[in-house]
């Protein structure tokens, strides 16, 4: 019986040996958790669902993200991800100064609607100085001008069975041997209807530049940067995300990032 009792000195020596063993071998014992289809990882990923539900319960649907003063704009908006899409559709639009561009809202709606850039610019506008938080860890404050998405969704008449909005973009975020992978992401309808969710066409009092998502970039201000789709052309209302991409609701989500993106 006595042999089972571990005293403090033995314990510390043992754990130091174990700990240094782990360190020397480089912690790669846990590399299997990087496998996207690993069952242990799939269980651990459920914590992201908990985070999403907890934040939705805690944060009011209409609560605004912090808006900053003009003096907080201390630099240009840092471009990241795609900065110069090379798909033929986009290059054609860009050469035509986005004259033929149309933003389409389709899917589970009463009527499919689409708008030209001029129409979007003539709609009631909202300007907000907000902080853009990249999943990498950095932040950048900029002034965004655009028209709120909510009223446009109402024009299309979102069906009561729709649960998500999928945002389809022009940019080829990844080029593979089997073709381009186009950027897309999605949100729930709370984020789609949020008063600060604007289809932005202006950045820091200038037309939105190509590197930041021209002609239209959706802002979802209570989420990370990968939830702010650039080069947006179609918003599709759906009740299931599995038919798109790898089925996780977005390009980065398919790579393994959490779908909610609010943390």
């Amino acid at each position: 019986m006595n042999k089972l009792i571990i005293n403090r000195r033995r314990f510390l020596a043992g754990s130091a040996a174990l700990g240094s063993g782990l360190m020397v071998s480089g912690c790669n014992q846990f590399d299997f958790l990087g496998q996207r289809d690993n069952p242990v990882r799939n269980v651990i990923e459920q914590a992201n669902v908990l985070t999403y539900k907890a934040q939705r319960a805690l944060i009011g649907d209409q609560v605004l993200a912090r808006e900053y003063g003009q003096s907080e704009i201390r630099q240009g908006m840092k471009p990241n991800g795609s900065t110069e899409p090379t798909t033929p559709e986009y290059m054609f639009l860009r050469q035509a100064n986005f004259e033929p561009y149309r933003l389409t809202i389709k899917g589970m709606v009463d009527r499919e609607v689409s708008f030209s850039l001029a129409e979007l610019r003539n709609m009631p506008a909202r300007t907000q100085i907000t902080r853009h938080d990249c999943v990498e860890g950095w932040s950048c404050i900029a002034k965004w001008t655009g028209t709120p998405l909510g009223p446009l969704l109402d024009q299309a008449g979102v069906k009561s069975t729709a649960r998500f909005a999928v945002y389809h973009c022009y940019d080829n975020i990844q080029r593979t041997l089997s073709g381009d992978i186009l950027y897309y992401t999605s949100s729930d309808l709370v984020d789609a209807y949020h008063p600060q969710s604007i289809l932005s066409y202006g950045l820091n009092d200038q037309p939105l530049p190509v590197s930041n998502g021209a002609p239209i970039r959706l802002r979802i201000e209570r989420a990370l940067g990968y939830k702010q789709p650039k080069y947006l052309h179609t918003i599709e209302l759906v009740d299931d995300l599995s038919p798109f991409g790898q089925g996780k609701g977005g390009y980065w989500e398919d790579v393994g990032y959490d779908w909610y993106g609010g943390i």
């Binding site: 360190m23 480089g26 912690c27 846990f30 958790l33 999943v135």
Partner: peptide, 20 residues
Amino acid sequence: GAVTIPSFRDLATGRVLHFF
């Protein structure tokens, strides 16, 4: 990499584990 989990660059997995 000796002091990160996973030992290779994988922000997505780091975040999944960190929040769990």
